[in-house]
Simulated assay, not measured.
Amino acid sequence: MTRSVLPAAALSALAAAVVPLTAQAPAAPAASSVAVVIKAGRLVDARAGTILTNQAILVEGERIKQVGPGSAVAGHAPAGARVIDLSGATVLPGLIDCHTHITADPGDYYQQLFRQSPIDQAVVAHVFAKRTLEAGFTTIRNVGADEFVDVALRNAINSGVVAGPRMLVSTMPLSATGGHGDVNGFSPYLRFEQASGIANGGRGRAWEVRGRHRRGGRPSRGRHRARARPLRDEVGGRREGQPHDGRDARAVGPVPCRARQRAFS
């Protein structure tokens, strides 16, 4: 059985650890006709729910041209094709994470809020991107980042400057005043001047969505509940009270969904 023409980023390899077969890593631009044959000792067929043995994958440029028994694929490979021997590894489709915040690492809430800025996030974001890729995730959907750091990271990955997965980015999370995306519970005399995603009403949300789209994002994250997020516990960083409701705007709530539709209409 053979299959053909799939995205090349759809595979990663597991040996002792996950080894991505197609990583967007820093490299000189390659010709689109470059062919690679990947020998897979075991191949996870996610559709059939089984593991195949002695398989091979033929990749040309950024497209998988054929997947099937090793002998059959080898017969279709052009002369001089590069061979990656993963006969002792298990190969599976690249993983997709639909909810990430890859530009930051959960830690000391007050340290990040008062002593760091989005510049700190931008400096280290590429580290998290590489870790994510090496864990086998070849595509992610980032649903919230400060100051368009996710847009800059996505662009750097796409241009080959840093290693990372393919990124779908929504820029700053959209929230009502006092909602999950707002900074709540502090003195009214404190001012946080960085860009935010606070917007109220359908018109306000539509305006914010258009602005993100203009700057390279694809907004899809709506934290529309108006309930204020409580302060975090001083010791463990845990939120007190009931957990917030921060589901995707696409999934729930007519207001953010309509605002998003109007913004792109």
Rank of each mutant, 00 (worst) to 15 (best):
M1G: 14
R3K: 07
S4V: 09
V5C: 10
P7H: 00
A8K: 07
A8I: 05
A13M: 05
A13D: 10
A15K: 10
A17N: 10
A17P: 02
L21E: 10
L21N: 06
L21F: 11
T22R: 04
A23W: 12
A25Q: 14
A28H: 04
A30G: 02
A31I: 00
S32M: 03
S33D: 14
V36A: 02
V37F: 02
I38Q: 03
A40V: 04
D45S: 04
A46Y: 01
R47M: 06
G49E: 09
I51S: 02
T53I: 08
Q55Y: 13
G61Y: 04
K65A: 15
K65F: 07
G68R: 10
G70Q: 12
G70V: 12
S71L: 14
A74C: 04
A74M: 14
A79N: 11
G80T: 02
R82Q: 15
R82T: 15
I84A: 07
D85I: 06
L86N: 11
S87P: 06
A89P: 04
A89C: 07
P93T: 04
I96N: 01
I96T: 09
I96D: 02
D97S: 10
C98V: 13
I102Q: 01
T103Y: 06
G107N: 12
Y110I: 05
Q112P: 01
Q112L: 06
L113P: 03
S117G: 05
I119D: 13
D120C: 08
A122F: 00
V123E: 15
V127Q: 11
V127L: 13
F128S: 13
R131G: 03
E134S: 05
E134I: 01
A135D: 08
G136F: 10
F137Q: 02
I140V: 15
I140S: 00
I140E: 02
I140R: 04
R141M: 12
N142W: 11
V143I: 15
D146K: 14
E147W: 13
F148E: 10
V149I: 15
V151E: 00
L153F: 06
I157M: 01
S159Q: 08
G160T: 03
G160F: 00
G160E: 09
A163S: 07
A163W: 02
G164K: 06
P165H: 09
P165C: 08
V169D: 06
L174D: 00
T177H: 10
T177S: 14
G178D: 07
H180T: 07
H180L: 08
V183A: 01
V183R: 12
N184L: 00
N184R: 03
G185S: 08
F186I: 05
Y189F: 11
L190C: 11
R191D: 14
S196E: 10
S196T: 15
I198F: 05
I198T: 01
G201Q: 07
G201T: 05
G202I: 09
G204K: 01
E208H: 14
G211E: 11
G211Y: 04
R212H: 12
R212S: 10
H213R: 14
R214Y: 13
G216M: 02
G216S: 08
S220W: 11
S220L: 15
V235C: 07
G236Y: 13
G236I: 07
R238I: 09
P243H: 03
P243R: 03
D245F: 07
D245V: 03
R247G: 13
R262L: 15
R262I: 12
A263N: 03
F264M: 10
S265D: 11
